[in-house]
């Protein structure tokens, strides 16, 4: 159970595939336009249920409850060793190698 007032994220279909703009490319036309918004939960609810939230600007949005205290998980990704080779190359060109 997620309590009223908790900070949550919801998901909603804004336009079904058949409601999409005429100019969108074929691959985009096959999928719906989806939306995610965060806000404070308006009433106790379970994950996956249809809920109403109040956003930080005071707006109401409805949608499927997906997350409580949604976090950021973007990062610096996997290491790209090519950058070390670039460093070695350009530092070598300007300041000479190790020898």
């Amino acid at each position: 159970m997620v309590k009223k007032g908790e900070w949550v994220r919801i998901h909603k279909i804004i336009l079904k595939p058949e409601e999409r703009a005429p100019q969108v490319p074929e691959d985009t036309k096959k999928v719906p336009l989806e939306m995610w918004v965060k806000g404070f939960l308006d009433a106790d609810a379970e994950i996956g249920s249809e809920v109403s939230i109040t956003t930080v600007t005071g707006r109401k949005e409805t949608g499927e409850l997906t997350e409580v205290n949604p976090c950021y998980d973007h990062s610096f990704g996997k290491f790209i060793p090519e950058f070390l080779a670039i460093d070695k190359q350009v530092r070598g060109m300007l300041f000479g190698g190790d020898e």
């Binding site: 804004i14 336009l15 999409r20 703009a21 100019q23 969108v24 985009t28 999928v31 719906p32 336009l33 989806e34 939306m35 995610w36 918004v37 965060k38 806000g39 956003t55 930080v56 600007t57 707006r59 950021y72 973007h74």
Partner: peptide, 27 residues
């Protein structure tokens, strides 16, 4: 773009995130 969303929220904004498409303009 997710980083930009984080930054906007850190600065107090509401961020409405959508999937690909020009209908962003509709919302």
């Amino acid at each position: 773009i997710i980083e930009k969303a984080r930054k906007c929220e850190a600065l107090g904004a509401e961020v409405v995130q959508l999937t690909v498409g020009p209908e962003l303009f509709y919302k």
